[in-house]
């Protein structure tokens, strides 16, 4: 099995080297006429105003956190997914019990998902909701 990972390692090394190699080949062929105008930032022909490294409204900040939770959940589910079939086919009668455990695990996550949905975290355009009078 480790030979397979060695192949992957060789592949990754080649993958890292390939782009500089292609650019090197290109360097021998392509023209090189530097001009300060060429190196300006493209903004449809207008002079660009200021840097674009500004504080940026990360609308999807909550979505990024949700992604993290879901992705960890998927990773935790993969080992279950691999052994699930064996449980189903070998131990007669235990199938529904195992399914209930999986459903419970996903169910807890889905409660959080429903909460985020109701709270409106999936809205890209945030609406200002009328405040309820207390």
């Amino acid at each position: 099995m480790y030979t397979q990972f060695a192949t992957i390692l060789i592949f990754l090394i080649i993958g890292v080297c390939m782009v500089p190699l292609i650019l090197l080949v290109g360097k021998l062929l392509r023209p090189h006429n530097p001009d300060p105008k060429k190196l300006t930032t493209y903004e449809c022909g207008e002079e660009s105003v200021g840097s674009s490294w500004v504080q940026f409204n990360l609308r999807f900040y909550v979505i990024a956190i949700l992604f993290l939770i879901f992705d960890v959940e998927v990773i935790l589910m993969f080992p279950v997914g691999v052994t699930f079939r064996q449980w189903m086919t070998s131990q007669a009668g235990k199938g529904l019990l195992v399914f209930a455990e999986v459903a419970l695990f996903i169910g807890i996550l889905l409660i959080g998902f429903a909460y985020a949905w109701v709270k409106g975290d999936f809205e890209w355009i945030k609406t200002i909701r009328p405040q309820k009078k207390s």
């Binding site: 592949f11 292609i22 392509r30 300060p36």
Partner: peptide, 30 residues
Amino acid sequence: LLLKEDIIPAAADKKLFILSPMLIFLGGAA
């Protein structure tokens, strides 16, 4: 495309600018 001049904007972050296609190639090809 191979014969086109290679342009890196003066304002860009040079290291990351060069790193980006490498990462994309690595991820896509692997």
